[in-house]
């Protein structure tokens, strides 16, 4: 996926001024990589991520998925091919765990048998044995378990691209480390491309092949972790690294 000069401006509501959330972003997401999007809260990470699955439309610039312009894809069909995990999980509270995990396959019209098998397999992969968890409702899960289910749901239909918006941000440190380990195990066995938003640089270093640093809507630098440390392109990047080191 490629972005060229992409901007997103939210119109001001009422007396509020308009907000430029993404400002002329150029970015190439390489096939199979894990790209981390870091920056402080409000810098436009989520907005950028949501441009990728057409949850938002760009105000300016071009996006390409493969060779085709993103805007030529029908949004719902596109989204079914892109996994998505949001910060709060966004599980459907009135659906059981297995139905939540099988959501995209259900939308794609998979037969029930196959859906269930797939859900069980994924639940096992994220460390939640189906026998215990499949029939539960989201409110019967802990925060960490919920995020595991959300990750399993995003991967259920084997999408070529997965978007994760601060998936572990709301978890306590110990649980987070645990879920991060699971996520890494999952990533290791797959060819999927992933974009993960985080405000936690340590997490970015742990999980990502490349890191894109954002500030006030602008992409300051996109590079491998080591290059970021060796050759920060902007004083802010250095500052950020110093802060993370402490």
């Amino acid at each position: 996926m490629r972005l060229r000069g992409v901007s997103k401006v939210y119109p001001g509501a009422g007396s509020a001024d308009e907000v430029t959330a993404v400002d002329g972003a150029d970015l190439e997401i390489l096939e199979g990589e894990t790209l981390a999007l870091v920056g402080e809260s409000g810098c436009g990470k989520s907005s950028l991520l949501r441009l990728l699955n057409r949850m938002e439309e760009p105000t300016a610039g071009d996006l390409y998925f493969g060779d085709a312009e993103l805007s030529t894809f029908e949004p719902t069909a596109l989204r079914r091919r892109i996994g998505y995990v949001q910060q709060t999980g966004g599980l459907l509270p009135h659906w059981t765990v297995k139905r939540n995990v099988g959501l995209v396959p259900e939308l794609l019209g998979w037969p029930k048998e196959r859906r269930l098998k797939r859900a069980e397999e994924l639940l096992r992969l994220v460390g939640l044995p189906a026998a215990t968890y499949a029939a539960r409702y989201p409110r019967e899960l802990s925060g960490g378990e919920r995020q595991r289910v959300a990750v399993a749901r995003a991967l259920a239909a084997d999408p070529p691209l997965v978007l994760l918006d601060e998936p572990f941000g709301a978890l306590d440190a110990i649980t987070r480390a645990d879920v991060q380990q699971t996520f890494m195990r999952l990533r290791a066995s797959r060819e999927q491309t992933a974009v993960i938003v985080t405000h936690d640089l340590d997490e970015a270093f742990l999980l990502a092949d490349r890191i894109a640093v954002m500030r006030r809507g602008r992409l300051l630098q996109t590079a491998r972790p080591q290059d970021l440390i060796d050759r920060p392109a902007d004083p802010y990047v250095g500052e950020l690294l110093d802060r993370a080191a402490n």
């Binding site: 949501r50 699955n53 949850m55 719902t76 069909a77 596109l78 989204r79 079914r80 996994g83 998505y84 949001q86 709060t88 999980g89 966004g90 599980l91 459907l92 509270p93 009135h94 959501l103 995209v104 939308l107 959300a150 749901r153 995003a154």
Partner: peptide, 27 residues
């Protein structure tokens, strides 16, 4: 009714009608 669930359902590819019938209305 749980705007998080509704937006996640949209982001995973439910149509507006599906979100209404399967998520927002039941909730």
């Amino acid at each position: 009714a749980d705007p998080d669930a509704a937006s996640a359902a949209t982001a995973l590819g439910m149509t507006e009608g599906q979100v209404l019938r399967r998520v927002r209305l039941p909730l």
